[in-house]
């Protein structure tokens, strides 16, 4: 079995997968896709792997998966024997999935806002900026209450896929003009994420803090 990640260094969704692979200590082969300026992810060869024309794509033998959330769940189920990242217990499982879907849907405007600022992807900058702030506020309210009850992570008492999936959008928000000033609980939580064994950075996320 060998894992192959079709990856773009500046893509925050690819980064989520790289981050979990590093935390799990899994060896894998990385294929760099020329997203900018080549749009290689929308070439016929890549559309055969993923008709949505986006990244990341994970190939594991006969299995091909798209969508960072699905890939995170797959890797956790297959390689996380302790069940830390995707708990088996229905309640924390449901809560982790809730935040994974939030990361995929409600944080999509943040992903788009960043691509708009960095790579000139078309977007209504005001609308995606406002939607990003709404989502970050929901995250900060959640972590504020979690801290007041003595918890450090989005779900349960250790880091899960929820923390991995939620981290890039806010950690990179300065790329699209949203400071961290208004999110004190997220600021503290981002420092904790950096302490996860195997934590790695990506361009836009400094390696010290």
């Amino acid at each position: 079995m060998s894992l192959v990640l079709h990856d773009y260094e500046l893509d925050s969704d690819s980064y989520k997968v790289r981050l979990l692979l590093s935390a799990l200590g899994l060896p894998y082969a990385k294929v760099a896709v020329n997203v900018h300026p080549g749009h290689e992810q929308r070439s016929p060869a890549y559309l055969r792997l993923n008709p949505l024309g986006n990244l990341p794509i994970l190939v594991d033998g006969e299995t091909t998966l798209r969508d960072s959330g699905a890939i995170l769940c797959y890797l956790a189920r297959l390689h996380d024997r302790e069940g830390q990242w995707l708990p088996a217990n229905p309640v924390p499982f449901g809560e982790v999935m809730m935040w994974l879907f939030f990361a995929g849907a409600d944080l999509a405007p943040a992903t788009l806002a960043r691509l708009h600022h960095m790579l000139e992807v078309p977007a209504d900058a005001d609308a995606v900026g406002a939607a990003s702030r709404r989502a970050f506020r929901i995250m900060d309210d959640h972590m504020t209450k979690r801290e007041l009850e003595g918890f450090a992570w989005f779900v349960g008492d250790q880091a899960t896929l929820a923390d991995i999936a939620l981290f890039p959008a806010i950690a990179l928000s300065r790329d699209f003009g949203i400071d961290h000033d208004e999110y004190p609980a997220l600021r503290r939580w981002m420092r904790r994420v950096r302490t996860i064994p195997g934590f790695i950075t990506m361009p836009g996320i400094p390696d010290y803090h």
Binding site: D181, P184, A185, R187, R188
Partner: peptide
């Protein structure tokens, strides 16, 4: 400008006034 115990030793936060 901030809650005191929200600012851990060895950290900084931006704000505006």
């Amino acid at each position: 400008l901030a809650l005191g115990d929200g600012l851990e030793p060895g950290t900084s936060a931006g704000t505006q006034l």
